[in-house]
Design a protein around this nucleic acid. Structure first.
Lengths: 195, 195
DNA sequence: TAATTTTCTTAAACTATCTTATTGTTTTAC
DNA sequence: GTAAAACAATAAGATAGTTTAAGAAAATTA
């Protein structure tokens, strides 16, 4: 069977616990595939987040806009990664975040109600999402540790090392926002780094 | 039934999906209750983390020691919260973290092998841990956002507001380390705040 | 290909945060 | 109850990071 629509997702789940045949069918039914241009939004601040999103191709950024109007990049999501605003999704509250493509992208989306059905019908899908979330937690914790213990220069080198692919595909302005410095200061850091 | 040992944990799980009677029995069998003095370690850098820990009473800090020997507080864990080093626990690698009581404490611990058995035997326990981890992720993400978008002063006010209880029980030195500033600078911040 | 927008760099002045050192106070351990 | 250790406040000089502004290079769009 393995319909073309969710083939990527099935390949992805190969690394995790095998999900039941029935769950595969269910997934195929409820997943929506979307092609997005550059700079398209899939979540806008103030809206409720209603989807869990899986990236097949491209890159999205999750950012917050502060009172002064400055954007702060919380996350980049590229191939085979998940993105959503858990807080908004689960608590049905307006999101403080924006999610936007920074490359033309292809994504799969699961609606909130379908996600809950999947959890109810498939303990293995539920478990896989636990493991995926645990890994996401580890990543965030590592990032917090960096912020309380490392300089901006060290955070930049860590980013280059951990995401060599993203480093080449994403502008320095976006990277600066992600590591928490101004583009000007990142430029100064890069001058020291590359010589 | 509800043995005294895990009563706290059962009360805690009331807020989540009900776990099966058999799981309750299993939990009771495999959970170890420990009383700890102030400054006792339950995880030391270099060791493999083998437990998931639930705090019944007291406070623990999870910290990392950098090359210069400075401690950086990644997390405080107080009543009805969980703590572990996921990265070390799941990947069986030496931990870079230390977990230590900062108050005399009472904790429950589940060994790694028992944890996996619980996951295998109880989809609802597994699910509850997914939800708990999702919430922990949200908390970490919020903290990352603070570091890339707020000043130390703002981070301090946020801490006071979010953890009023902890603020009174934890020394300013520990709080400074948590928000990522020196104790001296926190002192300067406090001077501005309280006047 | 030209026009337009975005990105990157430089520099100088400014602000936030750190370091070191000193002193008095509170907590803890015996 | 007292000695020892940990904690908190302050100040001055040093470093890290921001702001503003301007120009050059690169990427996107028409």
């Amino acid at each position: 069977m393995n319909s073309i629509k969710i083939q990527h997702l099935l390949n992805y789940f190969d690394k995790y616990w095998a999900i039941e045949e029935l769950t595969v069918k269910m997934l195929d039914k409820c997943v929506t595939k979307r092609k997005l241009k550059r700079k398209e939004n899939i979540l806008t601040e103030g809206e409720k987040c209603n989807h869990l999103t899986f990236v097949i191709e491209g890159i999205l950024k999750t950012y917050h806009v502060d009172k002064k109007g400055n954007q702060h990049n919380l996350q980049f999501t590229s191939e085979n990664k998940w993105v959503t605003d858990f807080s908004s999704l689960y608590n049905s509250i307006p999101s403080k975040l924006n999610i936007e493509t920074i490359e033309p992208s292809i994504i799969l989306q699961i609606k909130k109600e379908d996600l809950f059905k999947l959890y109810d019908n498939s303990p293995m899908f539920d478990r896989n999402m636990r493991i995926i979330t645990e890994n996401a937690f580890i990543e965030q914790q590592e990032r917090v540790l960096q912020h309380i213990s490392s300089t901006a220069h060290e955070r930049y080198l860590y980013f280059l090392n951990k995401y060599p692919d993203l480093s080449n595909r994403i502008s320095n302005i976006q990277i600066a926002s992600y590591i928490g410095v101004t583009p000007e200061f990142l430029s100064a850091i890069r001058k020291k780094t590359t010589i």
